[in-house]
C-alpha cells in the first residue's frame, strides 16, 4: 500500500508538474488569483523582472489573500514559496507569528503609505480603501454611509467576500467592527438580508457584479478607475461612506525558504521600484506604495477620497480575528 501510494504520487506528480529548466535560477512567488490573471499585474511584472535578473519567476496563485496565508501555514517550513505577495496589514501579525517569514532586509525609504510604514519583515507594494462599488444604471440612490447600507432596502442585493479566505472580506468585517463595535453582530444580522452571496475571493464577486447579477459589490475606491480607463465608462462608481473607509495596505514578505534564495532580496528591491510600481495602478487598480516614474492617470484623481481612514493595528486584528470571524459566521449562518 505504502509503496503503491508513493509510486502513484511520484507518477502523477511527474505527470502534472513540468520539469523546470535547471539552467536558470528560479524564484517562486505565492500570490492571489487576480494578481496573476491575464489582466492583472502578474504577466508584466514577470516579464520585466525576468529580463532584469535573467532568472525564472514563477507565480503560484490561490483564491485570495487570507487563503494565501492559510496555504503557507499548511505547507509549513517545506513551502516552495520564496516570497508571499498579497497579504495585508490585517494579517501581518499572524503571519509573523507562524515563524515562516524572514526579515526583508529591504530599504523602505521609498515606501509611502497612509500612516507611514515600520516593519522589518513585510514590505508594502500598494494600498487602497475598501468601498462598495455600484452600478449607476441600477442604483440611483446609493447609500451614503455604512449605516445606510446596513439599513437599506434588502431587495438591492450586494455581493461580499468570505473573511476566512479573502482580504476584502476580512476588511469589511473589520470595517463594520470599527464602525459598530460591539453592535457589529446586530448590524450583520441586518446586512445579511441584502447579501446575494458570499464568495471565497474578490474576483468571483466582482465577476458576478459586472455580469449584472448584483447591483453592488464589496471592492475598492479605486475600482471605478478601471472602468473609466479601460472601458471608458462612468457606469460604475464607488459609494462614499460618511464613517470613513477601511484602509488596506498590501504587502509581500520573504519566507524562511526564500531567505536562502538571493533572488528574493532582488525581487523586493524591484518591487518597490518603478518597474513594478508603474504597473500597479492600471493592472491591480490600487495606489502604488513605492517609487513610480509614470504619473498617475487623472482618472485616479476623480475617485472617492475617504472622509476618514479606518484601521485596526495588526496586533489587534491578530488577537481578535478568530473570535470576530466566528461571530460573523454565527450571524451569517442563522
Amino acid at each position: 500500500m505504502r509503496i503503491l501510494l508513493s509510486l502513484v504520487s511520484a507518477l502523477a506528480i511527474s505527470a502534472a508538474v513540468a520539469v523546470p529548466a535547471f539552467a536558470q535560477e528560479k524564484l517562486t512567488i505565492y500570490t492571489y488569483e487576480s494578481f496573476t490573471a491575464e489582466w492583472g499585474p502578474g504577466p508584466q511584472v514577470e516579464k520585466t523582472f525576468e529580463a532584469e535578473c535573467t532568472c525564472d519567476l514563477e507565480f503560484v496563485s490561490v483564491a485570495d489573500g487570507v487563503a494565501l496565508l492559510n496555504r503557507v501555514r499548511l505547507e509549513g517550513a517545506s513551502t516552495k514559496a520564496d516570497i508571499v505577495l498579497g497579504l495585508d496589514t490585517n494579517l501581518t501579525a499572524e503571519a509573523k507569528a507562524t515563524g515562516l517569514f524572514a526579515p526583508s532586509g529591504s530599504d523602505v525609504v521609498d515606501i509611502k503609505v497612509p500612516g507611514g510604514w515600520i516593519d522589518d519583515v513585510f514590505v508594502p507594494f500598494d494600498y487602497g480603501y475598501f468601498a462598495f462599488v455600484y452600478d449607476t444604471e441600477k442604483l440611483t440612490n446609493p447609500p451614503k454611509s455604512l449605516k445606510e447600507l446596513v439599513e437599506g432596502n434588502p431587495e438591492e442585493k450586494i455581493v461580499i467576500q468570505d473573511p476566512r479566505t479573502s482580504t476584502p472580506g476580512l476588511g469589511l468585517l473589520l470595517w463594520v467592527k470599527s464602525v459598530y463595535g460591539d453592535e457589529a453582530p446586530a448590524a450583520w444580522a441586518k446586512l445579511r438580508k441584502r447579501v446575494l452571496t458570499v464568495t471565497p475571493g474578490w474576483s468571483e464577486s466582482y465577476g458576478l457584479f459586472t455580469k449584472g447579477e448584483a447591483p453592488m459589490v464589496l471592492s475598492y475606491t479605486t475600482s471605478p478607475a478601471y472602468h473609466v480607463i479601460a472601458e471608458n465608462t462612468q457606469k460604475y462608481q464607488a459609494a462614499a461612506f460618511e464613517e470613513g473607509h477601511y484602509l488596506q495596505v498590501e504587502v509581500a514578505g520573504i519566507t524562511t525558504t526564500g531567505a536562502k534564495n538571493p533572488l528574493s532580496q532582488k525581487f523586493m528591491a524591484f518591487m518597490t521600484g518603478p518597474g513594478f510600481q508603474d504597473v500597479i495602478p492600471e493592472t491591480n487598480w490600487m495606489f502604488p506604495a513605492g517609487r513610480t516614474e509614470k504619473p498617475l492617470n487623472p482618472a485616479f484623481e476623480a475617485l472617492v477620497e475617504p472622509a476618514k481612514t479606518l484601521a485596526f493595528s495588526p496586533e489587534e486584528v491578530a488577537e481578535n480575528r478568530k473570535a470576530w470571524v466566528d461571530e460573523w459566521l454565527a450571524v451569517m449562518s442563522e
Binding site: N70, V198, L329
Partner: peptide
Amino acid sequence: GGGPRATTLEVAIYQSLRFDID
C-alpha cells in the same frame, strides 16, 4: 450554496480545513 447560510457538514469540513485551518 450561498455562503455560510447554505453550508452542509461536508462543505463546513472543507472550509474549516482550507479556510480557517481549524
